[in-house]
């Protein structure tokens, strides 16, 4: 059910977007909605991250599986169990850039009908790496439409990405990896009963949204070839705040379908699971050094406690204590 709702939602949104190809609608779908989406995306991101920034940092949680730094002759594992800020940055970088946690994914199997065996299950990591890195490169590649003149690094990336020179227009490696990664991540959710049970519409919708964007982008480049010059005029007009109604009319409804899905993605980003893009940096078990024992940590919100030590107590009650026969330390 979650699957069908998400699929129908993305399909409906795409069809809604193709309305941008109708006469006069280019201004709404090609100018107003993209700015609105960027505004919601940026505003939402700031709101989301600031709501996290106000949360007190918890005490360091040393969830690690590496040897802690202690005596000099015991070999420690600084990336697994960082002891200072620098090594914590190293662990963070491996997590953010290479999703190291996903490599710990395991699969439990019963073999010989009685032995439970855990094996490594790297496919989630492989699919995630293929999808995320391709997505980043595809985003940067799109700067050829948003920036004029095109920065050299974008051209370089484009050349490297298309180095296989298969097909005309050349098929980019990242296009294939992006779609293949997504297809695997979707198939994985659908194939496993346990995963299907815990998957919500909020898990399927982003997958279908990315698939919709990827497939419509592939379509625009390789099947129904879009008028790339008009598309660039629209895009560069957006980044330079100068618009051309001829280009907006010439861009074609398929392009507007693609663009509208991207707008939906931008506006949806901060309010969904996709905000893990910012949240991963704030993972308390990943971004704090395990210095619980080597450094003294004072609870930062300790307030001065009003105490009443024994000598003051005795000063206050000495006469009464003496009267009652209670022994006192000072006469």
């Amino acid at each position: 059910m979650n699957v069908l709702i998400s699929l129908a939602a993305v399909g409906g949104l795409f069809l809604l977007g193709t309305l941008g190809g109708a006469p006069g609608m280019g201004w709404i779908f090609g100018v107003v909605l993209p700015y609105l989406a960027v505004g919601i995306g940026i505003g939402g991101l700031i709101w989301r991250v600031m709501s996290w920034a106000n949360v007190p940092v918890p005490f360091r949680i040393p969830t690690t599986c590496g040897q802690q730094k202690s005596l000099p002759w015991i070999k420690s594992n600084p990336l697994e169990n960082p002891h200072n800020g620098l090594t914590a940055v190293g662990r963070m970088a491996l997590e953010v850039l290479f999703f190291r946690s996903l490599l710990r994914n395991t699969k439990a199997e019963v073999i010989d009908q009685r032995r439970l065996v855990y094996t490594s299950a790297p496919w989630l990591w492989i699919g995630a790496m293929a999808f995320h890195w391709s997505f980043l490169i595809i985003l940067v590649r799109h700067l050829r439409l948003l920036a004029n003149p095109v920065p050299w690094c974008v051209t370089f990336l484009q050349r490297a990405d298309g180095f296989l020179e298969i097909g005309l227009p050349v098929i980019y490696v990242t296009t294939v990896l992006f779609l293949a990664g997504l297809a695997y991540l979707l198939a994985r959710r659908l194939a496993s009963p346990q995963l299907r049970y815990i998957s919500l519409a909020g898990d399927y919708f982003p997958l279908f949204l990315f698939l919709g964007i990827g497939i419509s982008g592939f379509w625009l480049r390789h099947w129904t070839k879009t008028d790339i010059v008009s598309v660039k005029q629209v895009a560069v007009g957006l980044s330079g705040f100068s618009f051309d109604s001829d280009a907006l009319a010439a861009a074609g409804s398929l392009f507007y379908g693609h663009l509208f899905l991207v707008c939906v993605l931008l506006a949806y980003f901060p309010f969904s699971k996709l905000s893990h893009f910012a949240g991963v940096f704030l993972s308390p078990t990943r971004n704090m050094a395990n210095s619980n024992r080597s450094v003294r940590h004072v609870n930062p919100w300790d307030y001065p406690v009003k105490v009443h030590p024994y000598d003051e107590y005795e000063d206050e009650f000495r006469e009464k204590m003496k009267g009652a026969g209670v022994p006192v330390e000072k006469e």
Binding site: V55, V57, L282
Partner: peptide, 8 residues
């Protein structure tokens, strides 16, 4: 108490 400056 929190990491606000770094986060900003």
């Amino acid at each position: 108490m929190n990491d606000k400056p770094k986060i900003i």
